[in-house]
Simulated assay, not measured.
Amino acid sequence: MRKLFPALFAALLSVATLATVNINSAPQTELEGLKGIGPAKARAIIDYRSKNGPFKSVDELEKVSGIGRATLDKIRPEISTGTPSAAAKPVTPPARKAEQKKP
């Protein structure tokens, strides 16, 4: 049992680090949980997305007042836009037309 607890704890910790904050849907309190993002910056993120629509990429966060390259680099591993990247999307082959039988 003593050996199981550290392994379980490590597994839970690794899963927790994989979770990201979706900057397109996160409420203010969740945004404030990011390194370097306080109430004012969290509010600015929400105001920006309300005015301009959803962020198309994480890099667009630099357009928000008060967020520069250094802040973005700090939080980049913790954030996402909630949409998979084009590289991650599977390629679906076009549907085949049904062959028509001649009478």
Rank of each mutant, 00 (worst) to 15 (best):
Q100N: 03
S65F: 11
N52E: 09
T29F: 08
A11C: 15
I45R: 00
K63C: 12
L12D: 15
E62V: 12
K56V: 11
P93K: 06
G53H: 01
S85Q: 04
T29W: 06
L8I: 15
A70W: 07
I37N: 04
Y48N: 01
I46L: 02
R96Q: 08
R2I: 13
L8S: 13
A95V: 10
E99P: 04
I79T: 02
G38S: 01
N52P: 05
A26D: 00
K89H: 08
V91G: 02
A40V: 12
A42K: 00
E99A: 07
A26P: 01
T17D: 12
A7F: 14
T29G: 09
K41Q: 03
E99M: 03
S25R: 11
T83A: 06
P94C: 01
K74Y: 07
L13C: 15
L61M: 10
N24W: 01
A26S: 02
I45A: 00
K56Q: 12
L72W: 06
L34N: 05
R2D: 14
A42V: 00
S65W: 09
I46V: 02
E32Y: 02
P94S: 03
A19R: 13
I67L: 04
P90A: 08
R43Q: 14
A11L: 15
R2A: 13
P77L: 06
G66M: 08
